[in-house]
Amino acid sequence: MQLVYAFDAYCGWSHGFSPTLREVVSRRPDLPVHVLSGGLFTGSRRVPIREFGHVQGANAQIAELTGVEFGEGYDRLIADGSFVMDSEAAARGVAALLRVAPDRAAELATALQQAFYADGLSLSDPATYRKVAEEAGLDADAVVAAFESPEAHDAAADDFRRCAELGVTGFPTLLAVDGDRVTVLAHGRATADEIDRRLASLS
């Protein structure tokens, strides 16, 4: 069995789930974790953030319910409303990081959300992946090269397709996948204890 975490790096609720994900992974070091990026802001949804009028209110609710922070860097980045969230670029970045360190999927996915939601770094900027890689002790040149490679585009498309195949309808979604059996452990929000109980019922 493996855990499959379907998230979008530009999804505030996924950011809110980050502490839970890290706790689940720390409790279950024996369970492999596979991270899939979702295509939340692609196509016609790739527009300036001002067009999503609910963002600030939703973020306040996420912070209150989960305890995660939305930093000053993030506030500055979105202040004039012109910033465009591009989930395809973010998915390429996730793929690039995981290509260099596939066994650190959960850690790197949550680090990327911290880079955006705390530090206000664009997930379309190669410099962001350089910084995340350096802080994680990875080969930053290799990560940036992977981000800019054609393979990263293919990996992003593969992730979007796999999310659809697994029936993921929103982010974050945590699944237990055992052969053909797919069990939803969390959708949107859950505690590590709740996920533990759901995992225990599968064994």
Score class of each variant (00 low, 15 high):
Met1Arg: 15
Met1Asn: 14
Leu3Phe: 13
Tyr5Asn: 04
Ala9Glu: 02
Ala9Lys: 02
Tyr10Met: 14
Cys11Thr: 06
Cys11Ser: 13
Trp13Leu: 02
Ser18Phe: 00
Thr20Tyr: 01
Arg22Trp: 04
Leu31Phe: 12
Pro32Asn: 10
Val35Glu: 03
Leu36Gly: 03
Ser37Gln: 05
Ser37Val: 01
Gly39Trp: 00
Leu40Gly: 01
Thr42Gly: 08
Gly43Glu: 02
Ser44Trp: 04
Arg46Tyr: 04
Arg46Gln: 12
Val47Ser: 09
Val47Leu: 14
Pro48Met: 13
Arg50Lys: 15
Phe52Glu: 08
Phe52Gln: 10
Val55Gly: 02
Gln56Thr: 10
Gly57Cys: 04
Ala58Thr: 07
Asn59Ala: 07
Ala60Met: 10
Gln61Asp: 11
Gly67Trp: 05
Val68Thr: 07
Phe70Cys: 02
Tyr74Val: 03
Arg76Thr: 09
Arg76Leu: 11
Ile78Met: 05
Ala79Asn: 11
Ala79Gln: 14
Asp80Cys: 12
Gly81Glu: 12
Gly81Leu: 11
Ser82Tyr: 11
Ser82Asp: 15
Phe83Cys: 09
Phe83Met: 12
Asp86Val: 13
Ala89Tyr: 01
Ala89Lys: 02
Ala90Phe: 03
Ala90Thr: 05
Ala91Ile: 09
Gly93Val: 05
Val94Phe: 04
Ala95Gln: 05
Leu98Trp: 07
Arg99Ile: 08
Val100Glu: 12
Ala101Tyr: 02
Pro102Tyr: 12
Pro102Leu: 13
Asp103His: 15
Asp103Gly: 15
Arg104Asp: 10
Ala106Leu: 12
Ala106Lys: 05
Glu107Gln: 15
Glu107Trp: 09
Leu112Pro: 00
Gln113Tyr: 00
Gln113Thr: 00
Gln114Gly: 04
Ala115Pro: 01
Ala115Tyr: 00
Ala115Lys: 00
Ala115Asn: 01
Ala118Phe: 01
Ser122Asn: 08
Leu123Lys: 00
Leu123Thr: 01
Ser124Pro: 01
Ala127Pro: 09
Ala127Thr: 12
Thr128Ile: 10
Tyr129Gln: 08
Tyr129Ala: 07
Arg130Thr: 11
Arg130Ile: 09
Lys131Asp: 09
Ala133Gln: 06
Glu135His: 08
Gly137Leu: 04
Asp139Val: 08
Ala140Cys: 14
Ala140Gly: 12
Ala140Glu: 10
Asp141Ala: 14
Ala145Tyr: 07
Ala146Thr: 03
Phe147Met: 04
Glu148Trp: 12
Glu148Met: 15
Pro150Met: 11
Ala152Asn: 10
His153Trp: 12
Asp154Lys: 14
Ala155Trp: 03
Ala155Val: 09
Asp159Met: 06
Asp159Tyr: 05
Phe160Trp: 12
Arg162Tyr: 04
Glu165Trp: 02
Glu165Ala: 13
Thr169Asp: 08
Phe171Thr: 00
Pro172Val: 01
Pro172Ala: 05
Asp178Thr: 12
Asp180His: 06
Arg181Ala: 06
Arg181Met: 01
Leu185Tyr: 04
Leu185Pro: 02
His187Asn: 14
Gly188Glu: 11
Ala190Pro: 11
Ala192Met: 10
Asp196Phe: 03
Ala200Phe: 08
Leu202Phe: 11
Ser203Lys: 07
